[in-house]
Design a protein around this nucleic acid. Structure first.
Length: 487
RNA sequence: GGGCCGUUAGCUCAAUUGGCAGAGCAGGGGACUCUUAAUCCCAAGGUUGAAGGUUCGAUUCCUUCACGGCCCA
């Protein structure tokens, strides 16, 4: 951003110098007593056009537009709550301060003392009695009317997006409300919020490739966590009974409209519960979030959500019965025969990968309304407990989908340490066969399980995707303030 | 990794078959006491993403690269 138009910059610099020459601090330290500009309108809904009041307000924000240059002018001030029109009158301010106010640049931050009026054309405004320069802007802001449209600039310089586009401000306020609503409900349900290591000697709890970093003093590599699962379950072993963590996970994979290498996840674990309890809690939680933010879109989050087994979902969509094809080659042949139109390449894919492929391609995009897909094959689920039905090779697990996207993943948590050891050993075999997303063997976690973990229901939910769904955005980059970009 | 599309003034966008690179807003000068994409007059603003190539002449055609978007794997 160094090659700016020197003329535009020089003019703003000149105005900065002029302020200083006139003894005005262009960067004062504070401006106490500011109220949200939206309050002015909210408190004068009944004020007739053309009327003035004696109601004084102090507001502050960024100068966004200016109309008129003579003895009366109108300016727009933008703060977080919205936009308010300022009326500047030479007979109120005097010629000198009038000239100074009108010579400010769009983008300058100012504070204003004024009284509420409604203009003759009917807009609630503040008549400026006094104003203060709060920070001089030395660069031109985006277009006052078109805003900032360039996607790349919006992501790389989010501050400009927030300055220019009020939808961007609204979106990230909405995101904060989503996060707060999640915390509020889990807190109310008796969960303890905890913080576990981001830097981990061994990563785990999901099937993904990690970022690796290095601790100089300890002279050892550490991994950025891909999930919080294993640490949280050790806290369940420790007797905290209901725990959750909401924070960033990191996965070393490609970026896409649905993937950012760092993303926000909430995971919770509840002792003496199972995956059905997790499902009920998820339904209530998401419905509560939707209510808290005033969601009024196409999706119906009210419980209970539709439930379908993974087997039936795939069977209905493709005619392939994955549980009748537990052999890798048999399943590959069934997929090739049943769905040439899918264009799936089955070469070199393992059985669990094939199941995942066919589901992702044929089923997932169709899951628009909130849906719980239940009862997964054990091969896909190294931390889920075997199904109580006794059905061979099934675990108690569900994934939640909405808007064609996975938003949550939950199990009846595996607490039999011997079974868990066998699952780790299976993952090691997958890794040896070339699966670089396989789960590494975690002896310390096994030791914790050997001390005894109560039956536990656990769930992880992607916060970014939840915000996408709640806001109707189709790209994760829209809901992450500073998404990952190439240099 | 592959395919397609895009990159022009600070911002939003034009530019005919390959023929002097334009407008609005913003910025500068001026007029204006109810405007709200204010209006009016004047002047200014460009390494057309980068590097090569074809051509008398390239924003336009070709090649490579960078960044972004969408789709696919």
């Amino acid at each position: 951003m160094s090659e700016e138009p020197s003329e535009l910059l020089a003019q703003r610099r000149a105005k900065l110098d002029r302020l200083r020459a006139d003894g005005i601090d262009p960067f004062p330290h504070a401006f106490p007593g500011v109220v949200a500009s939206a309050r002015v309108a909210a408190e004068h809904e009944e004020l007739p056009a053309g009327e003035e009041t004696d109601d004084h307000y102090r507001v502050a924000g960024r100068l966004a537009a200016r109309r008129g240059q003579g003895k009366m002018a109108f300016l727009d001030l933008v703060d977080r709550s919205g936009r308010i029109q300022l009326q500047a009158r030479a007979d109120v301010l005097g010629p000198e301060r009038m000239e100074r106010l009108l010579s400010l640049d769009l983008g300058d931050l100012i504070g204003v003392d004024g009284v509420a009026i409604r203009s003759r054309r009917g807009e609630i405004s503040l008549r400026v009695d006094d104003f203060t320069v709060l920070a001089k802007s030395l660069r031109p802001p985006p277009d006052k009317h078109h805003g900032l449209a360039d996607v790349e600039t919006r992501y790389r310089q989010r501050e400009l997006d927030l300055i220019a586009n009020d939808e961007a401000r609204d979106l990230f306020v909405l995101r904060a409300k989503v996060v707060a609503a999640v915390r509020r409900q889990l807190d109310a349900d008796g969960f303890v919020e905890v913080e576990t290591p981001v830097l981990q000697p061994l990563y785990g709890g999901a099937l993904a490739r990690p970022f690796v970093t290095h601790h100089n003093e300890l002279d050892r590599d550490l991994y950025l966590r891909i999930a919080t699962e294993l640490y949280l379950k050790r806290l369940i072993v420790g007797g905290l009974e209901r725990v959750y963590e909401l924070g960033k996970d990191f996965r070393n994979e490609g970026v896409s409209p649905k993937h950012n290498p760092e993303f926000t996840m909430v995971e919770w674990y509840e002792a003496y519960a199972d995956y059905a309890d997790a499902a009920a809690r998820l339904e209530r939680l998401v419905a509560g979030v939707a209510e808290a933010i005033g969601y009024d879109g196409e999706l119906d989050f009210s419980p209970p959500w539709r439930r379908v087994t993974l087997r039936d979902a795939i069977l209905d969509a493709t005619g392939v019965d994955i549980l009748a094809s537990r052999d890798r080659d048999v399943l590959a042949a069934a997929i090739d025969a049943a769905q040439p139109a899918l264009g799936l390449s089955t070469d070199g894919r393992t059985w669990p990968q094939l199941v995942d492929d066919v589901f992702s391609k044929a089923v997932e995009p169709t899951l628009v309304q909130p849906t719980l897909v239940i009862d997964y094959p054990v091969e896909l689920s190294p931390f889920a407990k075997r199904h109580r039905s006794g059905e061979e090779g099934l675990v108690e697990r569900f994934e939640a989908f909405a808007a064609g996207m996975e938003i949550a993943n939950a199990f009846s948590e595996l607490n039999d340490p011997d079974d868990q050891r066998a699952r780790f050993e299976e993952q090691v075999r997958y890794a040896a066969a070339g699966d670089d997303e396989a789960q590494p063997f975690d002896e310390l976690f096994l030791t914790a399980l050997e001390h005894g973990m109560p039956p536990t229901g656990g769930l992880g939910m992607g916060i970014d995707r939840l915000v996408m769904i709640m806001s109707g955005r189709r790209s994760i980059r829209e809901v992450v303030l500073f998404p990952a970009m190439r240099d």
